[in-house]
Design a protein around this nucleic acid. Structure first.
Lengths: 111, 111
DNA sequence: AGTTTATGATCTATAAATAGATCATTTCGG
DNA sequence: CCGAAATGATCTATTTATAGATCATAAACT
């Protein structure tokens, strides 16, 4: 068996699986085939299968694309509000420190 | 400038940017440096920068990993509930049709 | 039941992401 | 201010994902 992709924490893996489930569910609700969804998302059928399976190696753009098509909203808001949030948050970020001054990068090495 | 990655819809792009902003914000709130977060997530500093910038080409596993570390919960629930949802949803999915019978894959070809 | 079609899985070539190093710039802390 | 350090950007080598085809199986509709 060929080694698949990089290791991730259980939480991240579960999150990807959960999102894949939501996408699959949305697709079925809309009576679409995997091939049809893949075509609309501009990806191959194989990739869409991996997205629905929760493969952590998939590009986040492709996953979000599929999610949007089948009506899965991650940030409980439409496109308009989304762009507004992105903009408004940019202003907030401007007030935050540009660089973080860490007293120690490592938690603790000397035991 | 080298051509970066595949094209995605505005919504998917915004979603990635929004998530990147949330991660960056969470990181700063926790007084972590980009390098430190990258190390904890098991990725390179360059990748972490792209994640915070909302690059749609990043692996979803790496992004979710970073999000989890800085406390950004995409599915408003802790790890335990997450795994439970994944499981319970599997049962629901089992009741749904395994294959979708599309009357027509293409909207309409003959005009 | 029989037929059609979606799905799942696997393989190869290609394209793209990632790691790692390096440099310039900004910014924080003393 | 003046160092130390974080960030941002860019480059190359390598790893990895993706497209596309193909095959086998399973499921849906008649």
């Amino acid at each position: 068996m060929p080694k698949t992709n990089r290791p991730v924490s259980p939480y991240a893996a579960d999150a990807a699986i959960r999102l894949g489930q939501l996408i699959r569910r949305g697709r079925i609700d809309r009576h679409m085939t995997v091939a049809a969804l893949a075509q609309r998302a501009g990806v191959s059928r194989g990739l869409m299968q991996r997205i629905e399976a929760g493969d952590t190696g998939c590009a986040i753009g492709a996953v979000f694309e599929a999610a949007a098509i089948v009506g899965v909203r991650l940030f409980d808001a439409g496109q308009v509000t989304m762009s507004r949030d992105v903009e408004s948050n940019r202003e907030v970020m401007a007030l935050l420190p540009k660089a973080i001054r860490s007293h120690r990068t490592e938690p603790d090495d000397d035991f």
